[in-house]
Design a protein around this nucleic acid. Structure first.
Lengths: 125, 125
DNA sequence: CAGCAGCATCGATCCGCCTGCATATCAGCA
DNA sequence: TGCTGATATGCAGGCGGATCGATGCTGCTG
């Protein structure tokens, strides 16, 4: 099966058809579901939360295993999924890998869901 | 294991700890993940989209099987999950079961995600 | 140049979920 | 009452994913 490695590109650039106006296409549904699937896990939600509230908005793997109570390989696995979904970015400094939130990635997802804005045509604003 | 049948109550009333300020608790993470898991499926996203864009904002199972290309039991299954997550509501009229969106359920989820509105306090920039 | 520490990857296991077939329910109708 | 059509539920197969131990890699450091 295919990866969601391009999820970020799909989201920040072309944009997935949001959940408001016309019925969404199957392809769009699969892309959006792919990103949401990355979010729909307790461990990953906590990772995002921990990283976001960390001192510089970044954290390395060794800082995250303890609070989560998961093994290092498992944490690394979750971080990989979040990164491939375009939610996290990785920066290697020396022996450490620092993860931080991709600026408005989550907000973009929220916007895709928040349909409401019963705007006339499509997506004004 | 336990169901997410109370997800709606959790969301519209007490509210799940959102993904912004302090690190979220494990229980909150699990609740939020539960609701997101209901959303993180192509078939269910399309169901929500179809129902929302239907004439009266409602649709019965028989109207949804064809567009999705899934069997009736499978569609019924997905509708059940969405309903238990608090995203859909069911109204039985005669032989038909009409499903419609729970008013601001999805928007609530979006708000839980959309966190931070880069307010001064933390890290401007 | 060994040795070590932080991470990523691999292999394996276990569990949950998507899907469809068969079947049970239930309301309307002859 | 008995039949038909619209939904819901039970059951089972198959796939994907969460987790961990072991291992490989790579910069630091003595």
């Amino acid at each position: 099966m295919e990866y969601v490695g391009t999820a970020l590109a799909e989201m920040t650039m072309p944009q997935i058809s949001p959940l408001n106006g016309e019925p969404i296409e199957r392809a769009d549904a699969e892309r959006l579901a792919g990103v949401l699937k990355a979010l729909a896990d307790p461990a990953r939600l906590r990772l995002l939360s921990l990283i976001q509230s960390a001192p510089e908005g970044e954290a390395c793997v060794c800082d995250l295993t303890a609070p989560l109570g998961l093994s290092q390989p498992t944490v690394s696995h979750h971080l990989r999924i979040l990164t491939e979904a375009g939610l996290l970015q990785r920066e290697k400094r020396g022996v450490w890998a620092y993860y931080s939130l991709v600026p408005s990635a989550i907000a973009t997802i929220a916007d895709l869901l928040t349909p409401p804005r019963k705007r006339a045509t499509k997506k004004a604003r």
